[in-house]
């Protein structure tokens, strides 16, 4: 890989005595969509959260867009370039949708009110809920909240978007509307790292699927290869459980 936007090298992480990550190395190219799958506790969310330093790690190094993740200054610089979408949406519950989208633009990017508002309106149109700008998050459905959360992250013009099980907290009928937004984003060439077991999205958008187990990357391949002919026994076991239904 010529010039990866995310470079993860031999990262180790412990939660007390539990090893969450055991020497994970991974390169992700500009515009690549990577989906991470694996059983719960395999370290996939932890790895994702290490990329924008929501989790610290004990050993190894991560570089994002040429900025090494060390020191507070660099961490904030990386976070400005990396958007994050959470399983539980985490919209700012005291603010309207519009203010959710404008806050970081104003505070972090120092944009004018008007510029921030225009960006927000454009993104709400993009995620398909322009009419909810003045609502509070609690007045929105889960699917709408997650689309606002995506728009909020996009408002910062990130180079990379991280998705931590974005549809796991959603009712089945709301999953589709979120995946459609993500799919559109992937088609636009956004670099995306997604922790998810949504097979439809993975097949349609992912260039690579990464299978993690017990804090390690066991195997990685394009989706059709990994899903149809996995190499490891552990991968086969896991896939048989999630692909059967």
């Amino acid at each position: 890989m010529a010039d990866p936007i995310i470079h993860i090298e031999k990262v180790y992480k412990y939660f007390g005595r539990v090893q969450a990550l055991r020497g994970v190395s991974l390169d992700i190219a500009h515009g690549e969509v990577v989906v991470i799958v694996g059983p719960s506790g395999s370290g996939k969310s932890t790895l994702l959260r290490c990329i924008n330093r929501l989790e610290t790690y004990e050993k190894g190094s991560i570089t994002v867009d040429g900025i090494p993740l060390d020191g507070n200054r660099n961490i904030n610089a990386v976070r400005r370039e990396v958007g994050m979408v959470f399983q539980s949406f985490n919209l700012f519950s005291h603010l309207t949708v519009m203010d959710n989208l404008m806050l970081a633009q104003r505070v972090v990017r120092n944009r004018s009110k008007e510029e921030a508002r225009q960006t927000a309106i454009g993104l709400l149109n993009k995620v398909g809920i322009p009419d909810k700008a003045d609502n509070k998050p609690a007045q929105l459905s889960g699917g709408q909240q997650q689309r606002v959360a995506i728009a909020r992250a996009l408002a910062m013009n990130p180079e990379v978007m991280l998705f931590d099980e974005p549809t796991s907290a959603l009712d089945p009928e709301m999953i589709k509307e979120v995946l459609e937004v993500m799919l559109a984003l992937a088609r636009e060439g956004m670099t995306m790292v997604v922790v998810s077991h949504e097979m439809g999205f993975t097949r349609a958008a992912a260039k690579r699927v990464i299978f993690m187990d017990e804090g390690q990357i066991l195997e990685e391949a394009p989706p059709d290869i990994l899903f149809n002919s996995p190499k490891h026994e552990r991968t086969k076991q896991f896939l048989s459980k999630i692909l059967s239904h």
Binding site: F86, N90, V108
Partner: peptide, 17 residues
């Protein structure tokens, strides 16, 4: 909820912001 702080930090805000 911790997620509020995490969401704010991952948008690039400092701890105090």
């Amino acid at each position: 909820p911790k997620g509020q702080m995490e969401a704010a930090r991952s948008l690039g805000m400092t701890y105090f912001q």
